[in-house]
Design a protein around this nucleic acid. Sequence first.
DNA 1: TATTCGTGGCT
DNA 2: TAGCCAAGAAT
Length: 313
Amino acid sequence: MGGSGPVHLHSGINGWFAETARDLPWREPDCSPWGVLVSEIMLQQTPVVRVLPVWREWLERWPSPADLAAEPAGEAVRHWGRLGYPRRALRLHAAAVAIGRDHGGQVPDTYTELLNLPGVGSYTAAAVAAFAFGRRETVVDTNIRRVHARLISGVALPSPSLTAAEMRLAAELLPDDDGTSVRWNAAVMELGALVCTARAPKCSVCPVRDSCAWLAAGEPPPSYVPKGQAWHGTDRQVRGAVMAVLRVADTPVPPEMFTQEPADLGFAPEGIGVPLAALHRLNSAPEQLERALAGLLSDGLAELQQGGYRLPA
DNA sequence: TATTCGTGGCT
DNA sequence: TAGCCAAGAAT
């Protein structure tokens, strides 16, 4: 289909984007490919407003992949802060190392090369190729999937996991022209983020509401109930609390600090008191704490040094 | 294919 | 208030 296809959708959504798009630093023309790559990794499952300050500090500290690669991986994890999913920091560091080793320090500009970088999957590879290098790529994220589901397929939500049919549809909708396709990808994503939202979509301000199959069908409800993400009492919660301790610790943390009540330790936990108290407040079972610590070691998010836990060197 | 993996704002 | 959900990747 391509350019001979839904030109009214292209002009409608791209026109809306030109007027409404947020001013995000990684969209600035002078933003480096490295800046785009960092933004895409940080934005995985993480809202824009939370990424913004961390992204700015990150690029000021590490303006190029080589700058990050020159530091221990633990520094990346430490400065990841509370963005969540700290393995992303580890992988971004590994990607910086790979870029220096395999690509002469330059972020690669093809989908395939990007896909081979740690932490870069099909979405991120396509997004960086498109937004950093102007390539025509089929970018499919959760926003784009939701817009397509409603606008084209007439259903409230996309299927639980990405299907081949969705990729086919996205490829068919993609404008033929390179520049237009890049704007289209960004514009549909932005429409999903600001208007065609998961809950309470703002259809009254949608630029393509007259073309929306879901509206035309009378806004049918979802055919399935999305599975909630458990948190309280989970291993993930414990891992998160342990990581919060390790991020602020400047010396290895002995296991007793995690397993024993602060009052029973007999000595002050110097500097890590607040996150340590939060961890103990969880009152998690000993075996759960064991699983969390073992998992962090296994994932490379922590290592043992002088009998204590610390961020990786 | 289904799970696992953080965090916090919003409703 | 408790649950929903966010520019996914790896296994």
